[in-house]
C-alpha cells in the first residue's frame, strides 16, 4: 500500500499569477475511501484557489467533525486551519472572522455536521451572513459511523442496506435562501467543470456563500436505489445555467447565441457572467428559485448550478459596523483605549 505520493510533479506544470503551481495548494495524501466524492471536492478547492492565484497564507480552512471535516488535511497545507468540535465550525469561524476579516474563510462540513448536530449554528450563521465559503459535502449518510441515513437523505432513497428512508429531507439550499444568503449553489463532486467556477464565485462573493455539493459515498451510498449515487445524480441533474468570472475566462468561453448573458459586478470589482436560456430561472429572485427547487424535486430532478445570487447583501461586519482594520492588527492602545474612554461610553448610556 502506498502511504506516500511521489513528490515528482509534471515538469512543465502550469503556473498562476503568483508563480505557484498546483502543488503549492496541495495537502496530504487522502485516507478517505477510494472513489469518495469528497476527494474530488478537495481537489476542486485546490483548483479554484490555484486559478484565483490566492496566497495560501491568506486562507483559513475550517471544519467540524466527519469524513468531510477530515478533508482540510488533504488540501492547502500551506494555509491556516481549524478542525473544530462537531457542528461548531460556524461559531469558531465567526470568532476567527471577527478577529481577522482579511482572510478568506473556506469552511467544509458534511450533511451530519451541518444538518443534524450543527443545524442550530448553521442557521444563525446564514442569518448573520458571515463572509465565508461554506461547502457541504453532502452524501446522505453518516459514513464515519457506517452508513446510517442522514437528515439530507431523500424520502424513499435507500443506501447499501436497502431500507428506504422514512423521513422528509432537509434542503440546505432552500433553507439558506430563505434565511437571506446572497450566494447559494448546488453542485456535484463528479462535475468539476461546474464545481470549480462555483467555488471561485463563492470565494469572490462578499457574505455567506453556500455550496451544497452532492458527494457520493462509494462505500455506503452508491447503489442504484440511492438518490446520492454517481449514476442517479448524473441521470437527474439539471443546471440552471453556466457562469464564468471575467478575468480568468475571457479567452476560452464560446458564446452560445441561444443563451442570455448577464454581467454581474461583484463586491471586489470582479465581473461574473451568467449564461442561461432565455426562459430559464431568474436566480436573483428568491421566490422563483424556491418554487423552482420544489418543482424540480417533484419531477425527480436535482437542480444544480448557481441557484441564488444577491450581490447587495450586507455581511456581518457591515451589519454590526465593525472596524475595517482587523482586530488582530490593532495595537493594545487601540483595543484598550483606557478608562477615560470607557467612562465616556458608560456615561453616554446612562
Amino acid at each position: 500500500m502506498s502511504y506516500l505520493r511521489s513528490s515528482f510533479r509534471h515538469p512543465h506544470a502550469q503556473k498562476n499569477k503568483l508563480g505557484y503551481t498546483q502543488a503549492n495548494y496541495e495537502g496530504a495524501l487522502s485516507t478517505l475511501c477510494a472513489g469518495c466524492g469528497h476527494d474530488s471536492i478537495s481537489n476542486s478547492i485546490i483548483n479554484a484557489c490555484f486559478e484565483l492565484s490566492l496566497e495560501p497564507h491568506k486562507i483559513a480552512k475550517m471544519s467540524g467533525i466527519g469524513c468531510s471535516s477530515k478533508t482540510p488535511a488533504y488540501f492547502l497545507s500551506n494555509s491556516h486551519g481549524f478542525n473544530s468540535v462537531h457542528g461548531r465550525m460556524p461559531s469558531v469561524t465567526t470568532g476567527a472572522n471577527m478577529g481577522n476579516r482579511d482572510l478568506t474563510y473556506i469552511g467544509v462540513s458534511g450533511d451530519g455536521d451541518t444538518a443534524s448536530i450543527g443545524m442550530g449554528q448553521f442557521m444563525h450563521l446564514v442569518r448573520r451572513n458571515l463572509n465565508m465559503v461554506y461547502i457541504v459535502m453532502n452524501n446522505g449518510v453518516y459514513g464515519l459511523t457506517k452508513g446510517q441515513d442522514s437528515a439530507t437523505a431523500d424520502l424513499g432513497s435507500a443506501s447499501k442496506k436497502g431500507v428506504p428512508n422514512m423521513y422528509e429531507p432537509m434542503d440546505l439550499c432552500e433553507l439558506a435562501i430563505s434565511l437571506g444568503s446572497g450566494y447559494v449553489a448546488r453542485s456535484f463532486s463528479g462535475d468539476k467543470d461546474q464545481l470549480v467556477p462555483l467555488i471561485k464565485g463563492a470565494i469572490k462573493h462578499n457574505g455567506f456563500a453556500l455550496i451544497d455539493c452532492i458527494s457520493p459515498c462509494v462505500t455506503f451510498n452508491n447503489n442504484p436505489q440511492s438518490t446520492k449515487s454517481y449514476e442517479w445524480v448524473r441521470d437527474h441533474k439539471e443546471a440552471t445555467g453556466k457562469f464564468d468570472l471575467v478575468p480568468e475566462a475571457a479567452e476560452i468561453q464560446v458564446q452560445n447565441p441561444n443563451e442570455l448573458t448577464e454581467s454581474i459586478q461583484l463586491h471586489d470589482g470582479t465581473t461574473l457572467n451568467l449564461h442561461r436560456q432565455p426562459d430559464s430561472l431568474d436566480i436573483t429572485c428568491r421566490e422563483s428559485v424556491l418554487s423552482a427547487l420544489e418543482e424540480a424535486k417533484q419531477n425527480q430532478q436535482v437542480l444544480t448550478g448557481l441557484l441564488h445570487l444577491n450581490t447587495n447583501s450586507k455581511d456581518t461586519h457591515d451589519i454590526i459596523n465593525t472596524s475595517s482594520k482587523p482586530l488582530n492588527q490593532m495595537s493594545e492602545s487601540e483595543l484598550c483605549p483606557g478608562s477615560d474612554i470607557l467612562e465616556s461610553i458608560n456615561a453616554s448610556l446612562r
Binding site: G37, D39, S40, S189, G190, Y230
Partner: peptide, 11 residues
C-alpha cells in the same frame, strides 16, 4: 464511474 479519483491523485 467517473468519480475523478484517479485524476485527483495523479502526481
Amino acid at each position: 464511474i467517473e468519480c475523478d479519483a484517479c485524476t485527483d491523485i495523479c502526481p
